[in-house]
């Protein structure tokens, strides 16, 4: 690991002030410390934001909730209001990582974690995300767990977060602060597709710091989060889904939210599937049509075409489970 300076920030303004080229923010460290050990991240300075006072979960007047960026994943998943009002979020957080990691990992850090693509994490290999312009060996190589939608010739990495998938389905608003002042970034919209510059995971500018994630009042309907992975626990998603469904007394879909994890460089809001479903008669036919509408966008690689069928089956079976 390369030597670095370490400073613990007392508040957000101080943290931003301490940020200069070569600086990285450290929160839980569950991803960053590992990347530093692997030689993938080589900061000159760490500004520790893990104990900043953004550690509360509190209701807001419009019926929503404000979640501080330094709230630990374990506290978010265990919070009574989150469990009761945003069950897809509680389930998504509880299905990520291990008990130990959830105790360390923060909300802000979870959103900004890097891909677990094996080439990105191996400094002996080319990777456009880690070393722009060196190429993407995953495209001709090992990509069975990588993207099927939204990828480019430069990068087929996936975003690994479960929490972000639920936040994307719930129209979260991410509050950030930086030298240019404060602003709000909507989800979807925080993460970006790889295009020709996959080194940029998000739309955040250097030095911008996530302070809070705000959720609007939960939409009416039954919701859940389901995750398919290679072992029963403590593994990243092959495909995951955050889903909400509300059907009126005539059997018509009134509201629907669908977001997929493990399929793209971003937590993937399945807007086409939602559009296809809302207003249609709930049932097998509509669920299949919605899944097909979304997955018409899929451009699988030779070794991950199975994810298209997996995503289709996950969408339809989850909707079936949510229908009363």
């Amino acid at each position: 690991m390369r030597p670095f300076d370490y400073v613990r920030a007392g508040d957000g303004r101080q943290a931003v002030g301490l940020h200069e080229p070569g600086t990285m923010y450290l929160a839980g460290g569950t991803n960053l410390v590992d990347l530093m050990r692997l030689g993938v991240a080589e900061p000159d300075r760490l500004v520790d934001v893990g104990r900043l006072p953004y550690d509360r979960i509190e209701p807001v007047p419009d019926g929503g909730v404000r979640i501080g960026a330094t709230v630990r994943n374990s506290d978010l998943g265990a919070h009574p209001d989150i469990r009761r009002r945003y069950p897809m979020l509680a389930r998504a957080v509880l299905s990520g990582a291990s008990g130990q990691v959830r105790n360390m990992a923060t909300v802000g850090g979870n959103l900004l974690q890097r891909t677990r693509c094996g080439y990105f994490q191996d400094v002996s290999k080319p990777c456009n995300k880690r070393a722009p312009g060196t190429g993407c060996p995953a495209i001709p190589g090992e990509h069975h767990n990588l993207a099927i939608v939204g990828h480019s010739d430069s990068c087929v990495a996936t975003h690994p977060s479960d929490m972000a998938v639920a936040l994307t389905a719930l129209d979260a608003r991410v509050h950030v602060t930086g030298t240019g002042g404060d602003r709000v970034v909507p989800m979807p919209g925080l993460h970006r597709l790889p295009g020709t510059d996959p080194q940029r995971d998000t739309v955040l500018e250097p030095g911008e710091l996530i302070t809070t994630v705000e959720l609007p009042a939960p939409p009416v309907g039954r919701s859940t989060y389901r995750k398919v992975r290679e072992r029963a626990s403590f593994a990243f998603a092959l495909v995951s889904i955050a889903a909400l469904l509300d059907i009126d007394s005539d059997g018509i879909v009134r509201e629907c939210r669908l977001a997929l994890g493990g399929v793209a460089h971003v937590p993937w809001r399945a807007a086409r599937a939602e559009d296809a479903l809302i207003g249609s008669v709930a049932g097998e036919e509509a669920y299949a049509a919605a899944a097909d509408a979304e997955l018409a966008l899929a451009r699988p690689l030779p070794r991950n075409a199975y994810k298209v069928a997996l995503a289709r089956n996950l969408i339809t079976s989850t909707l079936r489970e949510l229908a009363p």
Partner: peptide
């Protein structure tokens, strides 16, 4: 942080001590 053999309690919570910088 994948095997758990380094697990200790920090302020009463179980964590992976290999992923924690001591200065933090």
């Amino acid at each position: 942080g994948q095997c758990g053999s380094c697990t200790v309690l920090v302020d009463g919570r179980r964590v992976n001590s290999c992923l924690l910088l001591a200065v933090a």
